[in-house]
Nucleic acid binder design. Structure first.
Length: 489
RNA sequence: GGCGACGUAGCCAAGUGGUUAAGGCGGGGGUCUGCAAAACCCCUAUACACCGGUUCGAAUCCGGUCGUCGCCUCCA
């Protein structure tokens, strides 16, 4: 397995340091609903973790929640609620989104506010070693003290200084020094510390948590490319200075950023689509396919067309695994596809390539099925790779037998079609079947067309008419159509 | 200004030195069907931004040009 390491800007053989892969991914600051950019990052690291497990690695996955920072305080003040309440609300919202997207929960989700003791311990250690200094109730990291500073983002302090002005508070020794502990202003939440009342800086929590939950040296640290500098650079400085052990992280993995139009989708630019908004229009599978269909290190352009294409693509896979296996004789062997899939994923998690293999397999399954070859085993391979590794749900169609000739399936996400609706729909389908027998094609087609408009798609097969709900029609609309046709239930 | 990434068919997007340039969506034709839908078959890039170079050979390496984006401040 090869992975691209931001630290060396090249792909390297993946060799974890111990029996268990230690994986840390930067989590959210919960002051608003999560957007598609978050979806991209967490879907990707979910797939990476799933794939590691698929390849028989044990994985311990930690993700932080930055539940105290300036943004949270500002937003809470705007809404006139306590910062903790705001953070709780959007942390819950985050988990709802993650669950909806079928992202497996991390092993631990430490919160900044829950790790103050460890944070203080690390800061004190850095002061003791001369890497940090208190000033005016705050504590800063002395970047000039760390000779490696800049190794991840590949920039030098002097170059950074020469470029833009680093914004410095007067009490800093060097404008590039960053805060480990921030003295609290009046009215802000605070915790007691050896340096007075205050709260942790943003970067220190990740160093503290990863140290506490994963140890001094970890295998994978992930996040969006926008975190490379300064966040991850600072984490390295803190952790390696504190423990004296290098490297803090063996493989740094960064995903590309989602763009909306020409710009990066971000909270600060305000050009975002939330996960909740996207989920009202697109299935979780479609969203995952949209994300996984391009390489994780490339920027992803958000587009409705892209999502629509992904909806169709998801449907294609779902149909291939759902079709009846009426074949006989020797089974279709999907082993070569499985190998290709693994080969693709082994190469820096090339999910686009891996998906292409699954589409090829779907195609092969359809061909084999049409030819009367047994496809059950191949369908099993497709389903297991898609579900286990890519985290797709790929619900196998189940047909509800309303009558012996009418089969209804429900593809509407988490929607239970009420009996009242099923009853009316099946009555209409019965009517259409009758019309077809009597060769009243016009009336039959009218029923099919109207049902389609109401959200029910019909397909005539040898086994009978199959009905799929795209969405649940209202009883009223069905009743009015029944009345129009002069049919009583 | 410094650092980095990208520019492949109508759209999205793999491929990063060598047979006919993946896959998805869309489009055209056909098989099946009463008609559809689904599925299947065929077609849909005259060399991959442009220019120059290295090489027996480049979309793939090097240099330049143009364009787009990201980071350098909070951000997945």
């Amino acid at each position: 397995m090869r992975v691209y390491n931001t630290l060396f800007r090249k792909k390297e053989e993946f060799l974890p340091q111990g029996d268990e892969v230690k994986m840390y991914v930067c989590g959210v600051t919960p002051y608003d609903d999560s957007h598609i950019g978050h979806a991209m990052s967490y879907v990707i690291f979910d797939v990476i973790r799933r794939y590691l497990k698929f390849r028989d690695y044990k994985v311990k996955y930690v993700q932080n929640v930055t539940d105290i920072d300036d943004k949270i305080i500002d937003r809470a003040n705007q809404r006139d609620i306590p910062p903790a309440e705001l953070a709780k609300k959007f942390t819950d919202s985050y988990f709802e989104d993650m669950d909806a997207l079928n992202i497996e929960r991390a092993d631990v989700y430490p919160k900044a506010t829950g790790e103050i003791a460890k944070i203080i311990e690390v800061i004190q250690g850095l002061i003791d070693k001369g890497f940090a200094y208190p000033a005016d109730g705050s504590v800063y990291f002395r970047v000039r003290k760390d000779p490696d500073y800049g190794k991840l983002s590949h920039r030098s302090l002097d170059a950074m200084m020469a470029g833009e002005c680093a914004i410095g508070s007067e009490e800093k020794e060097d404008p590039m020094d960053f805060a480990l502990w921030k003295a609290s202003k009046p009215g802000e939440p605070f915790w007691e510390s050896p340096w007075g009342e205050g709260r942790p800086g943003w970067h220190i929590e990740c160093s503290a948590m990863s140290l506490k939950y994963l140890g001094e040296q970890i295998d994978i640290h992930g996040g969006g490319q926008d975190l490379i500098f300064p966040h991850h650079e600072n984490e390295i400085a803190q952790s390696e200075s504190f423990t004296g052990k290098k490297p803090f992280v063996k493989y740094w993995l960064h995903n590309g950023l989602v763009q909306l139009g020409e710009d990066k989708m971000s909270k600060s630019l305000g050009n975002l689509v939330t996960i909740k908004q996207a989920l009202t229009k697109y299935s979780p599978d479609a969203i995952r396919i949209f994300i996984l269909n391009s390489h994780y290190r490339s920027p992803l352009k958000y587009s409705e067309e892209g999502l629509e294409a992904a909806v169709k693509a998801a449907e294609r896979l779902r149909r291939a695994v759902s079709r009846d296996d009426s074949g006989s004789g020797e089974a279709f062997d999907a082993e070569s596809y499985r190998k290709q899939f693994i080969e693709a994923m082994d190469d820096d998690f090339n999910t686009a390539q891996a998906l292409a293999v699954l589409f090829d397999l779907a195609s092969a399954i359809n061909q084999a099925g049409d030819a009367g070859v047994s496809i059950g085993q191949a369908q099993g391979t497709l389903v297991s790779l898609a579900r286990e590794v890519l985290g797709l749900k790929l619900p196998r169609t189940t047909y509800l037998e309303l009558t012996e000739r009418i089969l209804i399936r429900d593809t509407v996400k988490a929607t239970v079609i009420p009996d009242t609706v099923n009853k009316r729909v099946s009555r209409l389908i019965e009517e259409r079947l009758k019309c077809r027998e009597e060769k009243k094609w016009q009336r039959a087609d009218e029923i099919r067309k109207k049902l389609d408009e109401l959200g029910v798609v019909l397909e005539d097969t040898k086994a009978g008419t199959r009905a799929a709900y795209k969405r649940a029609p209202s009883v009223e609309s069905l009743d009015s159509f029944l009345k129009e046709l002069g049919i009583t239930l």
